[in-house]
Amino acid sequence: MKPILEVQDVSKVYPSDNGNVEALRPTSFKVERGEFVTLIGPSGCGKTTMLFMLAGLEEPTDGLMLVNGRQAIGPGADRGMVFQNYTLYPWLTVAQNVLFSATLKTFRQDGGDLKAANERCDALLYLMGLEAFAKAYPRELSGGMKQRVAIARALLPRPAILLMDEPFGALDAQTREEIQQLTALLTRHEGTTVLMVTHDVDEALFLSTRTLVFSPRPGRIVEDISVPFGEVRTLDLKLTPEFISLKRRMLGLLRRESDANRQDYLQRLLQVQEPEISHVHPRPKARKESQ
């Protein structure tokens, strides 16, 4: 069977006034149906850029992205997206937010069944523990609830891939664990393929079946780690020696990469030290003090 996602030599370069900024080196990977893949790395490593390119919200500078063997160009409901910030439509109720995709032209053109969509909306809200809030407006919800609605909204059109950009970053620890478990349950139940960006090692290991570790900018994949903790996971997993040893390995990887990066920056800083310092402290004054 074909992989659900194939990324071939995708790179991203941002043009800027002082030359081009390379955000992502040519990157390739494949994702099989039903995998839960996390992209992890320091900020600015291009993992979010990768996700936005997959969502069709940004264009790759080079390379090819195939979803179900077909090239993905521009955004589409086959790649659902959950954003880091709360992005519910405040003028729509919870149910209307979840059903948003089913009220669009593309849904009708693709022969979508509104009644089935309504039932699916009810089911998703029920699974997310939000059935009592179907008619509530986003301003009445807590942060965790908003993000659960956003996930339900992205899942409604049954996307081939669910893309998530640090979706739980703004939540408190307890809410985060709850919603992590819900997400795992729901996506496993539906067999959804998930790509999630995170910088939280615990989260990556607890949720994913596979983790791609990115280097600091310009980003590239430095390691492709499979996370062999089985299908059903409980919070106790986080306390097992296997989990902790894998966590240690990943933290080591991330630190090594950022240390290397820091060394690089230090080198560059030392090279420009002289003129930099003279700007900050006028030389004559410094001399006077030393005498």
Binding site: G56, L57, G76, A77, R79, M81, F83, S101, L104, T106
Partner: peptide, 9 residues
């Protein structure tokens, strides 16, 4: 962007 990823034109 959310609307785009949900299929809005």
């Amino acid at each position: 962007q959310v609307a785009q990823t949900l299929g809005a034109k």
